[in-house]
Design a protein around this nucleic acid. Structure first.
Lengths: 459, 459
DNA sequence: AAATTTGTCTATTTACATTTC
DNA sequence: GGAAATGTAAATAGACAAATT
């Protein structure tokens, strides 16, 4: 171990302790944070080992441990035993918001917005309901977890996925993200870790960050978590749960095999992990596979949003929740919403009861299929194959692009797409792909135009 | 310091270390948690001083410090220097949910629900909007923080309170609680402390708990925080902010003087505290006083919900946010909602634009005034005086009642009310009061009936 | 396969600050 | 107003465990 002449062993970070005031571990952590945020320490930089820095500063090892720990909890660093401590890759990245419609020149294929034509039936239904005698109640407060009738509709809806549950295990949320946030808050605590696919839905990243929950990628093969990966993360990284999107995964558009679903259910039971299963696209699949929740209902919070399948404006999701988390989840939803809109919840339930929701779903699937045929044709050889009802697709880029650089080029060409970087979890170098939305362009013509512009960039 | 014969100095808690496995501080904390939750250690019990327990168990002082700290962070204990460590009063209390309509025999005067008759105009307006050509967009996604037009409506609405802000500082939330939760998540972090009135809105308690934020009561006089109280909490308890309800405070129904508003604004600036001001009832006041936000706009997140003033079913609140927290708040809202319902947000904005919202407000105020006259008459001598447009009232109980015992008696008599215990923050013995809702009973007749039943219990 | 590197965890020492009496 | 009681915080020590070489 080098005792002196540190200059010969270049350390990536040499803080000047003499100028710092207050407790050393706090002052050092703040300095480290500044140096990372200012760009003085770049993403991926390996920091000096704790012992080395402790020696250099003539402090105790544990003091440095605390400094690194503090910054790690802020998401600035990530450390692993034997390997060292590194500046996180997404430390500076902004937690980008989706949904943009400001710039009318731009063809929006970043955010995933279902086409509005299918909203007609929802609108008509809403008008119908408002003519009923008790319509004024629709503008009052509703139950935070939904009425029995609404929950019954949820049971009906989930049965279409091949998942049988009951009204005692269903709660309503103000759409999928609302339910996801509530589930995270109810089932985990600050500094807990959750395993996710190596690239995942950005909404779970921002939500987890708010609660101080850490996401870490589970080793995967062919876009599916491996058993070893989950066990490793459970035993060595101490994850408390998993977040998975089995159907048309975001952003890979991969649909998980039944075998893997069963495996995840079984391993979660053994390792005592709580699964948060985002069934956002399940019913969009041509032949929906059974959710993981159906193999481990006591171990899984299943979120079935209506946004992509029926209508985003309904702001409705049905959530299956195991007994042990039921009360906590309802409390979390109460803390976030007090109550959901009775109007929207009632419309959602009514649409399901009389089969209109299913009609809308089929209509959407048909529309998406038509669009995916065009996508497959124009981006042949680049777009990653998947079912024809996928609302999003993943495009493989040539070597010389990164997701981000292609994103910028596409924007120059008047098309908004999202590079893989936005979806990556943890430190890994993201793949050279971009995600495109199939449903967002308002017409098939605009979709075609957008695809052609992208094709031109790809050669 | 007693070295042996501990039996002579009765310690309230004598854990048996020998049976515990794993790290001692964790095992002890879990044991303590069990003993509190099982009722073995009752609320208010003084625990042994850290040194004494350390001696008894032959452990280091700091180990016990950690045990107590862990439990304190779970809200089970509260400690103060020189005084000791006590089991929290609300440790066992369930974070009760409001809004109940299940039991039709019960006259609901617990939850505060605006009367539904005023929802008529909102309903009509909604129907009108849905006949417009671009109505299908109302069922798509909206901007998470609201469109410019919606935010402009918010500016107009806040101006009625005497608070001038601009669209750059306004964001929309899915009602007040949604905004409150977002503000807590955006502006504070786990284990931060926030000062509140000694009794406050329970929704802030559940929301803060989800984020691991601790509430503590600020010393008050005549229902208003004192300057010394705030400074003390800032300097000695290290609070990072304040949560206040200046108008018809929940549950006291007290309206804060302008002098105190200015004082809070000034002290918050000096002590660098962020104020979260809940303007839920501001516009209900006969002559709305200027919000604290108007005296410290850079220091205050102001939440103006439409639920109590216009219509709860709109699920809309306008939030004024200082620059420094703008991006964080929008991200928090995005994490909770992705987007708010464009339908409801558009209706809210339109109602404000053409003055209908104001009409509804005046109508509500008139209705509440009529009801409060009845309240004042029937509960004369018991109900605490306040303005006639208060949607909630506080009732002083005779000596021999506690809030909770009266709550139970009232329920026996067929009236739901909420005792002071539900609102109390921290350890203090709650006052002997209950809160009653003025607006919830569906008719004046039912209100009268409910009040008479309560009157009979009071003698 | 063993040695080394490296981060993690628990418990301790010491000093300090506030409140009570 | 000073001593005692009491909780808080920072820095340290030592043992441990995982990953690398």
């Amino acid at each position: 171990m080098p005792i002196n002449s540190f200059d010969n062993y270049p350390m990536s970070w040499k803080p000047d302790l003499s100028r710092l005031t207050g407790p050393k571990y706090i002052a050092l952590a703040e300095l480290l944070e500044r140096d990372i945020k200012s760009g003085k320490l770049k993403a991926g930089t390996k920091l000096p080992p704790q012992r080395e820095l402790a020696d250099f500063l003539d402090l105790n090892l544990s003091t440095i441990t605390k400094v690194y720990k503090l910054c790690e909890q802020k998401g600035l660093l990530s450390a692993s035993v034997g390997n060292g401590t590194y500046v996180s890759s997404d430390a500076a990245a902004n937690p980008v918001l989706l949904c943009g419609k400001e710039d009318s020149h731009l063809i929006e294929m970043g955010a995933i917005v279902p086409f509005v034509t299918s909203n007609l039936k929802v609108k008509q239904y809403t008008e119908l309901l408002m003519r009923k005698p008790d319509a004024l109640e629709l503008f009052s407060y509703g139950a935070p977890e939904g009425t029995r009738r609404q929950r019954t509709a949820g049971v009906t809806w989930l049965r279409k996925s091949g998942f049988c549950t009951d009204t005692e295990h269903i709660v309503l949320a103000a759409a999928g993200q609302n339910g996801l946030m509530a589930a995270l808050g109810a089932c985990f605590k600050s500094n807990d870790k959750i395993g996710t696919e190596p690239m995942t839905y950005p909404g779970v990243k921002t939500a987890a960050k708010l609660f101080g929950i850490h996401l870490l990628p589970v080793r995967s093969r062919d876009c599916e978590m491996t058993e070893e990966g989950i066990r490793y993360a459970a035993q060595n990284e101490n994850i408390k749960g998993l977040y998975v999107i089995p159907d048309y995964q975001n952003p890979t558009s991969h649909t998980m095999s039944v075998g893997t679903r069963k495996m995840i259910a079984a391993v979660a039971k053994e390792e005592n992990l709580l699964i948060i299963e985002d069934g956002i696209n399940n019913l969009l699949c041509e032949h929906p596979l059974p959710p993981i929740a159906s193999f481990a209902p006591e171990q899984t919070v299943y979120i079935a949003s209506l946004s992509k399948t029926v209508c985003p404006g309904l702001r409705t999701a049905f959530i299956h929740v195991p007994d042990q988390f039921h009360e906590k989840l309802v409390t979390a939803l109460y803390s976030m919403n007090i109550a959901i809109s009775p109007l929207l919840a009632t419309v959602s339930a009514a649409l399901i009861e009389d089969g209109t929701a299913e009609e809308i779903l089929e209509e959407r699937k048909k529309g998406i299929t038509e669009r995916n045929r065009i996508v497959n044709q124009i981006l042949e050889g680049f777009v990653i194959p998947c079912g024809l009802t996928a609302p999003l697709r993943s495009v493989q880029l040539p070597e010389y692009f990164t997701g981000k650089s292609f994103e910028i080029c596409a924007k120059q060409a008047g098309v908004e797409v999202y590079g893989a970087e936005r979806f990556s979890v943890g430190n890994r170098t993201p793949e050279k792909t971009v995600r495109i939305s199939v449903t967002t362009p308002p017409s098939v013509e605009i979709l075609t135009e957008g695809l052609q512009r992208l094709r031109a960039l790809l050669q």
